[in-house]
Structures are given as structure tokens and as C-alpha cells.
């Protein structure tokens, strides 16, 4: 009991003494995850939409994205190191960035694909029947009506990546994982706990903010 309250006092102390460092690491973490998810959206949303027009490819791609998700994160980061060593980028931002993009693909592609597939066929028929071109149907009807579901996939990817982003520190990509890797190597408990708390807070805040954005993107016509 006494030991516990001591520890929490020490953790709070750690936070107070290292505000500057914590902010820097948080910014690094957010940059890494943010950029990875943005690129993942740029790849995953169009791919998910395209797959709705190509059933046979859809199965393959979704399975592949599923397989990537099942690779333990530390192993995926590990695989990236030798691959990027070829271009002398084995350690640092790039391998971590690519690993996170790969991890984000499944929720983003799957949600986009499923959402577009599930657009009411009558509504699609009406869009076609009144003379919309495929692109007009997509941008005026299908995407607006599925934006909340696509956004839910993005939210999942972000929250997932904030957690997995911790591993990035092991391959020198920085971020809040630093506190944990260094805490372990130095045997510094406060550091490990402070790192874990900071990551949790980041994850929860990101979820709340993205939920809010999701509501903003939901067309007014939805209940």
C-alpha cells in the first residue's frame, strides 16, 4: 500500500519533471500514426471502392489484409528492418511508417468495401436510372451515404496504430514507446508507467476526437 502510493507520487513527479520530453514524444507519435493513417486512407478508400467492382480480387485483397493483421506487430516491424536496410533506411521512421500503413489497411479497406457494397440497391438503381455517371453516383450518393462507416474504419485504424506505434521505438522511430523501451533498459518503473499512461490518454483522446468528426461527417438526413 505504502509502496503503491509512493510509486504513484513518483510517476506524477516524473510527469512534472519531463513535460518537455513528453510533449516531444507525443508529437512524434502523433506524426508517425497520423501520416501513416493519411497514406493508408489514400490507398485504402479508393482500393475498397474499386474492389466493389471486382469480386474476385476483393476476396484476395481482403484476405491478404487480414493476414497482415494477424502477423504479431513486433514481427512485422522486424520484417521491415532488413527490407528497408536495402536502401539504408533499416532503422528509424520509414520502416515503422510502412508497417503502420500495412496495419491500417484491413479496417479501412474492409469498412469502405462493405459500406459501399451495402448501399441500398434501390438507391443505386435510382442514381443510375436518372442518368448519373459512375463517378457522379460514387461522389454524390454512395460515398456521402457511407462516410460514417468509412470513418469508423479510420477510427479503428488510428486507435490501433497508436497502440502498435509503441513498437516503433524498438526500431528507432521514436514516439511514446521510447519511454517504455528506455524504462525497461534502465529499469526505471516510473518511466514505463508514465509512458503507458501517456499512450492510453492519447488513444482515448484520439477516439473521442474522431468520434466527433464522424458525427460531423454524418449527413444530416441520417437519424
Amino acid at each position: 500500500m505504502n509502496k503503491n502510493s509512493n510509486l504513484s507520487r513518483e510517476v506524477i513527479g516524473y510527469f512534472q519533471d519531463n513535460v518537455q520530453l513528453l510533449i516531444e514524444l507525443t508529437v512524434e507519435h502523433v506524426q508517425l500514426v497520423g501520416l501513416a493513417v493519411i497514406v493508408a486512407i489514400i490507398i485504402g478508400v479508393p482500393l475498397g471502392i474499386y474492389l466493389t467492382t471486382n469480386e474476385s480480387l476483393a476476396g484476395t485483397v481482403l484476405n491478404l489484409a487480414g493476414v497482415i493483421m494477424t502477423i504479431p506487430s513486433i514481427a512485422l516491424f522486424g520484417i521491415m528492418v532488413p527490407i528497408f536496410s536495402v536502401i539504408n533506411q533499416g532503422i528509424g521512421f520509414l520502416p515503422a511508417f510502412v508497417a503502420l500503413i500495412l496495419y491500417s489497411q484491413l479496417p479501412i479497406i474492409r469498412n469502405t468495401y462493405t459500406a459501399i457494397k451495402n448501399v441500398d440497391p434501390q438507391i443505386r438503381d435510382a442514381a443510375e436510372g436518372i442518368g448519373m455517371k459512375t463517378s457522379q453516383r460514387l461522389f454524390r450518393v454512395e460515398i456521402p451515404n457511407t462516410l460514417p462507416v468509412i470513418m469508423a474504419g479510420v477510427r479503428t485504424a488510428v486507435v490501433l496504430n497508436i497502440g502498435i506505434g509503441v513498437i516503433a521505438a524498438f526500431i528507432g522511430a521514436g514516439g511514446l514507446g521510447e519511454l517504455i523501451t528506455q524504462g525497461i533498459s534502465r529499469g526505471n518503473q516510473e518511466m514505463i508507467i508514465a509512458g503507458s499512461i501517456a499512450i492510453s490518454i492519447l488513444g482515448i483522446s484520439a477516439d473521442i476526437i474522431l468520434r466527433f468528426i464522424q458525427t460531423l461527417l454524418t449527413p444530416k438526413g441520417f437519424t
Binding site: I123, D125, A126, E128, I130, G131, R140, N145, K220
Partner: peptide
């Protein structure tokens, strides 16, 4: 596309777009 824009089309389920007012 031109043909369809010159023909009114009404279906049973009304086919109104939920995202548009």
C-alpha cells in the same frame, strides 16, 4: 446517360437519396 436524363424514372421504394435534402 443522355437518354436517362431525358426520361423520368420513378421506383416503388422512391429511391430518394438519404444524404440530400
Amino acid at each position: 446517360i443522355d437518354l436517362r436524363r431525358n426520361i423520368g424514372y420513378v421506383i416503388q421504394s422512391n429511391g430518394l437519396f438519404p444524404n440530400m435534402n
